[in-house]
Simulated scan of single mutants.
Amino acid sequence: MDQMVNPDHPLRKAFEGKRVLVTGDTGFKGSWLCLWLAKMGAQVMGYALPVERADDHFALLGLDGIIEHVDGNILDAAALNAAFERFQPEVLFHLAAQPLVRFSYAEPKLTFDTNIAGSVNVLEAVRLSHSLKAVVYVTSDKCYRNNEWIWGYRENDELGGHDPYSASKAAAELVFSSYQDSYFHARANFGAATVRAGNVIGGGDWALDRIVPDAVRALRAGLPIEVRNPHSTRPWQHVLEPLSGYLTTAARLLDEPKRFAGAWNFGPDTTSVRTVGELATMIVGEWGSGAVRIAEQEHAVHEARLLHLNCDKAHQLMGWRPKWTADRAVAETIAWYHGVHHGHDPLEISTKQILAYMES
C-alpha cells in the first residue's frame, strides 16, 4: 500500500524529507504520529522501549519496517545521546512517558523517574544537539492544578497535581521552562514548545485502565463495560486531533521559531465534552451490541471529575481547530477496532483514517 498525503498539503510540505526523531514511538500516540510523518515523506527514527503486546498499534502496523526504530529507555542518557548523534534530527517530538494515572499510584517512583528524569535526559540531548531546529515536548492536560472548574484551563494557569502522574507532568513543564529560559530562547534558528492535550481515543490503544480499550476487551468477550466514574467529564478527542496540533506546532516553529515557542493546549470544543458514562454508551452503540455497568469500587484512588482545556491561543494564533466531533471520534475509533477484529489490515485502516482526517 503506497497511499500518501496530498503533496500540496501544508503539513506534508513542512515535513517531507525532514529528519524527525520521535521518543515513545512504540506507544499509542507515538505510533500514530510516526505513521503520519512517514506518509508525509519524513525520514523518521523512533526511540522507545520495546513494544509490549503483539496487538499494540506499533506491532500491528509493522511500523519497524516503515520507520527506523531503536529500542531504548530515555533513562539511559548514553543510548539516547548516541541516537541523537547518529541520526542528527531536525525535528523532535518527545512523547516517551509513563502515561497512566492509576498506574502512577502503584509505581510513583517509576513515574517520577521516567517523566521527570527521563525528560531531563531528552532536554540535555536537545541542548547538545546542533542539528535540531524544532522541538515539541508533550506533557498533558493533567499538568494543571485541577480546581474542578467548569471553564477550561489556559496555558498560563497554575500547574500542579494531586496524583503522582499529574505531579510528574507539572514538574516536567517546570523543567522545560528552565531549559527554555536558560538555553533555548537565545539559540538562533531554533524553537521549542510544550503541548498539552486531553484524553485521546483511537484504534490500537490497549493500555489498562483506559475506557476505550477496557470497553473493547469487554465487548470482544461478551461482557458488560464496567465504568468506574460515570459522571466524570473529559475532553474526549480522536488521537489524530492532538497529533495534528503537535505537527502544526512543529511546522510553525520551523517557520517562526521564537513566535511559536511556549505552551499550547489542544483539545475539543465544549460541544464534544462527554461524561465517561455517555462515552461508554456511545461505544456500545457503535459496536452494535453490549451493555454498560457501573463498577463498585473499594478504596478507590483519586481521579479528576471535571477537566477541560481552553484552546483559544491555538485557535487564534496558530489557526488550529479540531475537525472531528465526539460522535465522529467514537465512530472512527470503534470502526478501527471492529475492522481489525474482523480481519481487516490495521495499516490500511490507520492510513485511510489519517488521509480522511487531513481531507476533512
Rank of each mutant, 00 (worst) to 15 (best):
W236A: 05
N229L: 13
A218R: 00
Y246I: 01
S232W: 09
Y246C: 09
A250W: 06
H231I: 13
R228D: 15
V212Q: 03
A207D: 13
V200N: 11
L243N: 06
H238I: 02
G202T: 02
I225M: 03
L253G: 06
N199L: 12
R252H: 12
G222Y: 06
G204H: 01
P230G: 13
V227D: 01
R210C: 09
N229S: 13
H231C: 10
E241K: 05
L219G: 02
D205P: 01
E226L: 15
D214W: 07
Q237I: 10
T248C: 08
H231D: 14
I201S: 04
A250V: 07
L219N: 07
G204L: 00
T248D: 02
L254K: 06
L223A: 15
H238C: 01
A221P: 09
L208Q: 14
A250H: 04
W236S: 01
V216A: 04
P235F: 05
A250N: 02
R210D: 15
I201P: 03
T248F: 04
G245R: 07
G204K: 00
V200Y: 01
A251N: 09
R217T: 14
E226V: 14
T248H: 05
V200C: 15
G203F: 00
L219V: 11
Y246K: 01
L253K: 08
A215H: 03
P213C: 07
L253M: 06
G204R: 04
V227C: 03
H238R: 10
A221S: 15
D255K: 13
D214E: 15
H238P: 09
V200I: 12
R217L: 10
L208T: 12
I211G: 03
D255L: 13
R210G: 05
L223K: 15
L240G: 05
L254R: 04
P230C: 11
D205E: 10
L240S: 08
R228G: 12
T248Y: 03
D255Y: 06
L254D: 07
L253S: 02
L208P: 07
I225T: 10
P224T: 11
A250P: 00
L208E: 15
A251F: 08
A207T: 12
A251H: 08
I211W: 04
R210W: 14
S244Q: 04
P235H: 05
L219W: 05
G204V: 01
R252W: 02
W236T: 00
L240P: 05
P230H: 09
L253V: 05
L243F: 03
R220D: 05
D205N: 15
A207L: 12
R220V: 11
L223S: 14
A221F: 08
G204W: 02
T249F: 06
H231M: 13
I225F: 00
L223M: 15
L208I: 11
V216F: 07
P224W: 07
R217S: 14
P235G: 14
I201N: 06
R252I: 00
